[in-house]
Amino acid sequence: AAGQRIVYLINPHVGHLGIFVSAVVARREHRAILASLAEIEALPPGLYEMRIEDGPSGEVHRAAGKAAIRFEPRAVEDLRFAPPPREAFERVRVVSETGLALYRAFLKPWAQAASNPWTAELLRWLHPMRTSRYLLSEEFQPWMRLVAATAAQVAANRHRARPGNPWLSQERAVVGAVSQAAESARALRDAAAERGFATLYSGPTGTGRSASGGDAGG
């Protein structure tokens, strides 16, 4: 792992529409990561899967004597993918080390010079997880009190739609179309990323095989 700790996590219950349904999906993982920074820093270099156990209310918790968040060691072989040849990763390593050297030589001194408690506090308050709260809060936007009152009235007068309601079929059609569009966009994105990687790092053929490592000669 080149001295790095690589941690990933998987939510098996969320599909492509999870990002549209509720922000709780992202907040759950975000809270778990923030609550585990000390444990992550204490891990030996390597690849780990982060496993999260939810409390009764769905909140990330740590039960007495039993960690609700744990890190299970993994190997690259555990990840299901067809890796490009080693030569491609060697080219990636060279590009990465070159970029790191350029950053340390030209950008890092400026970043360190601009870093101070004031800029740190500014970045803290400009974090999207924070701005999404206070920019639309009643304290920052007084008119949001109308939204809160309207939401309370709507919640108090909700009724289940009748089975023959035409809006239900329209809703299902829209959800299906959005899901299909998200799936198509994901497939196009992944294919473009794969082609780009092959073009940049896997040699002139872009096939992911070296000139001497093909199928010639059986």
Rank of each mutant, 00 (worst) to 15 (best):
A161I: 04
W118I: 12
F81E: 10
A1N: 15
E183W: 03
A68N: 08
V25W: 05
Y201S: 11
N116Y: 05
V60E: 02
A155Y: 07
G203I: 12
L37C: 03
P85E: 15
W110F: 13
N157V: 12
L79F: 09
A114G: 13
E138T: 10
A75T: 15
P128V: 06
L146T: 04
A68M: 05
P12W: 15
E183L: 06
E87W: 08
P117I: 10
A2S: 14
E97R: 14
A192G: 10
R172V: 02
P12Y: 14
A155N: 09
V178E: 09
P163C: 01
G65Y: 05
P163A: 04
I33K: 01
V147C: 10
R124P: 00
E77I: 07
T131V: 11
W167D: 11
R104W: 00
H61P: 00
L34Y: 10
L126Y: 09
E90W: 04
L146H: 08
A113Y: 08
A155L: 14
R189H: 11
A216L: 14
Q4Y: 04
P128W: 04
G213C: 15
L107A: 14
G208D: 07
R104C: 05
F106W: 09
G15Q: 10
Y134L: 05
G99T: 09
R70T: 13
L43Y: 04
H16D: 06
A63S: 07
V7S: 06
S210T: 15
R62W: 00
W125Q: 10
L102S: 05
E121I: 01
L107H: 09
R133C: 02
V94W: 02
A187H: 09
G99C: 11
E87Q: 15
H61Y: 03
R31K: 00
G55C: 05
